[in-house]
Design a protein around this nucleic acid. Structure first.
Lengths: 287, 287
DNA sequence: CGAATTTTTGAATAACTTCAACAAACGTGG
DNA sequence: CCACGTTTGTTGAAGTTATTCAAAAATTCG
């Protein structure tokens, strides 16, 4: 797999990793920072499709050489691990697990898109904003297991929230004002405070399974006796997580292994299982 | 691969293939009929996530044994090919192409979900309805290469259109009335007539790349010198399409191979290429 | 500190929903 | 083939939700 080593890439906040319409010959593993998928309409209207946290796989569209249908922009300064698209074929032939693995990762992205579709299509502005804030809160907090803080920095503006929920920034502001008045949450100048988690879950109409999926956004699936599947694509261990401690011999980094983040943040998956954590989040990929 | 043969399954119009919340231990290949993915909110609001035509792969969620986050319902009487989820691991180990293949298929689903997100989130009711009608028209017509008809049967009610576009059925009706008044299209009692394709594309704000992706929804990607990737998962030929004529020795059916469906519906891919069509659409899977 | 960005607020408007009633097409059994 | 019940579609009026435009206040960043 050492053959597939490749360079990494840095992007400044606000900079595009790639844009809609251009072909993308590589896939990227977000190692550090935040990014988002988006699409633009001809007149400039923007839809944010998904927020990506460290561990996300970006840029795989199934059709190599085809133009991307969406763009990816860095929300903060960010670091990506680059894998040439052409390397995937040989790679998956040598390591049969990687294909299913990737499929699994993309399926999770699709499910997230489905969830957002339902939110935007069928929920009120209040529900949508609550939904997104809850999702980002849970996903972000699950990266810092052990922390219980209900206050955190989210690198978004209210305009971003609007573009993600299908609302105008102005209306998002009014909705946030309401949520604050009701003692549910506050969000201003990139600072989110959850005042009443239970009522937030209630307003968001988030069922427990959905919240669980946010928590497990980066957690491994392990097929008994088969290869390891996880979101970030295991650093090494395609035939089992045991090899994962050998260091970075592949372009992918398992970043959020062990992110449990369940309601009360019990011990992480890594602590429960015998398998070691490959690499801490927010740490640069060494390949 | 003969080991992985499995039964097929039939569903009547309106019947659920599986529901949100229940685990799904198999993936399904839609062989005949229409279906759709959907989610329900607690109070009964419904969001239709995607319409599935023959060739679609349904039920793969990446996490075996986990509860599905969405349900799938048959829109017409339908026939599915069933592949136990457990068979995928061994299968992909023996045929390394199949994992990437599946990833590719799911990536296309995700991209479709992204497109719908942008439509629902940022387009007006008129644009959304035009968008969906155009998509379904193009996808359906590409299954019948050679046909130029601009009139077709779509097995949907206006209520379905509403649930897919995030509108009420009543409002969909008004929008359709407008589109008819403007000489763009007609849809009533499951009959769609495209009156002015160019203006429809215009109203839908569909860029050519997107339309192309609808057309190619079931078309093969062929990595030079590598394995074949296509939506339905190739019947046989994991190492190349040449094996595809051996008959149905796998649980998957390549249904829409050769569906070109480009603007003027020239000869199909199958006719152009030397590779035979594995199996006609709308024909039962023999496994 | 000063400039740029982001948030906040108000008033008027537009878009979509809701409720309710009626009409048209479908399909089923006699 | 027709009558009848059911589903689906169509229309109107009123109400709600979210947008637009515009301006001012707050915060951040260099």
């Amino acid at each position: 797999m050492a053959d597939h080593k490749s360079c990494d890439r840095r992007a400044k906040s606000g900079q595009d990793l790639f844009s809609a319409g251009e072909p993308c010959d590589a896939i990227f593993n977000l190692v550090e920072g935040w990014a988002f998928h988006y699409q633009l309409l001809a007149d400039g209207r923007r839809q944010i499709l998904d927020f990506a946290l460290p561990g996300a796989v970006l840029g795989f569209d199934g059709l190599s050489g085809a133009a991307m249908t969406y763009g990816v922009q860095a929300l903060t300064d960010a670091v990506f691990c680059v894998v040439p698209r052409r390397a995937l074929g040989p790679l998956s032939r040598r390591h049969p697990g990687i294909g299913l693995h990737l499929a699994s990762s993309i399926a999770r992205d699709r499910d997230a898109a489905f969830a957002r579709l339902t939110s935007i299509g069928r929920q009120s502005a209040r529900e949508r904003v609550a939904h997104l804030m809850l999702e980002l809160f849970v996903r972000r907090r699950s990266q810092w297991p052990g922390h219980r803080i209900e206050e955190m920095h989210l690198p978004l503006t209210q305009e971003h929230i609007g573009d993600a929920t299908g609302l105008t920034g102005v209306h998002v502001n009014r909705v946030l004002a309401d949520l604050k008045k009701d003692g549910i949450l506050t969000f201003s100048y990139r600072r989110l405070v959850i005042l009443d988690p239970d009522r937030l879950v209630d307003v968001a109409e988030a069922d427990p399974g959905l919240v669980q999926s946010w928590i497990q956004y980066g957690v491994i699936e392990q097929e008994p006796g088969a290869e390891t599947l996880n979101r970030g694509l295991a650093s090494t261990g395609v035939d089992g997580p045991r090899q994962a401690q050998d260091g970075c011999v592949a372009p992918f980094t398992e970043v959020r292994r062990g992110a449990s983040g369940a309601a009360h943040f019990g011990r992480s998956q890594a602590q429960r299982s015998a398998h070691p954590v490959v690499r801490l989040a927010n740490q640069r990929c060494a390949c």
